[in-house]
């Protein structure tokens, strides 16, 4: 790992001003991707600005007005998976958080760090897409449709800090994942949620970044059955193809996992 200057600010303002003054800075959250990347010299910031001192970025709460669940960006995956509020009101979030990596990673890795990185195989992005999330930074709100842009690319500017994410509470939802046996990442992950305004299907792992599978949503809005998905074509154009899975196979998995999700939800109702 190359050398760098380390800072642990105690306020958002001070984090921002440290960032503005440094030559080539990066923010550090749980570090479960960034530190291994720095060890491999894939990342080499001049300054590392550790956000872990910002207590206001921690925690899970229910918002009174619109009945959403707000999760602080620095909340680690296990704190989401074990949150009594989440388990009672939005258990699919616990399902997603509990499926990430391994226990040690879930103790350090954070929601904000994961989505800011926008790894194509990360789990959280499928949940944000499927649960109509709103991403809050220090000074603006970004709808999830505008947030995930491309491979490791989001609507965030370099100096932006994710503060919290709001999730809508659907009538029901589930997450189905084809887990890579070694890394724990999603080869493909599909989150299906039934909201008052219709079905949402969030897909991760298949493309350069998470996306809505609108054709699958349309089919499920017409008929919430596994058979309804048979007629839908999931084109693999632009899908990821690597040593783990071809684009064609990932396209196949999108449909298989969507069917599993529908079957799961139908068996619960």
């Amino acid at each position: 790992m190359y050398s760098f200057d380390y800072h642990r600010p105690d306020s958002l303002d001070s984090a921002r001003s440290l960032f503005a003054q440094a030559e080539d800075p990066m923010y550090l959250s749980g570090g479960m991707t960034l530190i291994p990347s720095m060890k491999q010299r894939l990342a080499a910031p001049s300054d590392l600005i550790d956000l872990s001192g910002l207590a206001e970025l921690q925690g899970v709460e229910r918002l009174d007005g619109d009945g959403k669940i707000r999760i602080g960006a620095l909340t680690c995956h296990n704190d989401v998976a074990n949150s009594a509020l989440v388990l009672e009101q939005l258990p699919v979030l616990a399902q997603v958080a509990g499926a990430i990596g391994d226990n040690q990673v879930r103790n350090r890795g954070t929601l904000g760090g994961s989505i800011a990185n926008s790894d194509p195989a990360a789990d959280w992005p499928a949940a944000l897409v499927g649960l109509q999330a709103t991403i809050h930074t220090q000074d603006r709100q970004i709808a999830v449709e505008d947030f995930f842009r491309d491979l490791f690319e989001t609507a965030l500017a370099a100096e932006d800090i994710v503060v919290a994410v709001d999730f809508a509470i659907p009538r029901r939802a589930t997450y189905q994942k084809f887990r890579h046996p070694a890394s724990g990442y999603a080869v493909v992950g599909v989150l299906i949620a039934e909201h008052d305004n219709g079905i949402r299907v969030g897909v991760t792992g298949a493309g350069p970044c998470a996306f809505r599978a609108c054709a699958l949503e349309d089919a499920l809005n017409n008929s919430f059955t596994e058979e309804a998905l048979d007629a839908v074509d999931v084109p693999d154009v632009g899908f990821n193809s690597d040593i783990h899975a071809s684009a064609e196979y990932r396209s196949h998995l999108v449909k298989v996992l969507s069917k599993r999700a529908v079957a799961q939800l139908r068996s619960e109702s």
């Binding site: 380390y6 642990r8 550090l28 570090g31 479960m32 530190i35 291994p36 590392l48 550790d50 872990s52 296990n78 226990n103 040690q104 990673v105 103790n107 350090r108």
Partner: peptide, 19 residues
């Protein structure tokens, strides 16, 4: 390399000493 950091298991090869 698993140790407990503030009571929770972490991989100490992926944590900076300064953290």
């Amino acid at each position: 390399c698993t140790v407990h950091l503030d009571g929770r298991a972490v991989k100490s090869c992926s944590v900076l000493a300064v953290q």
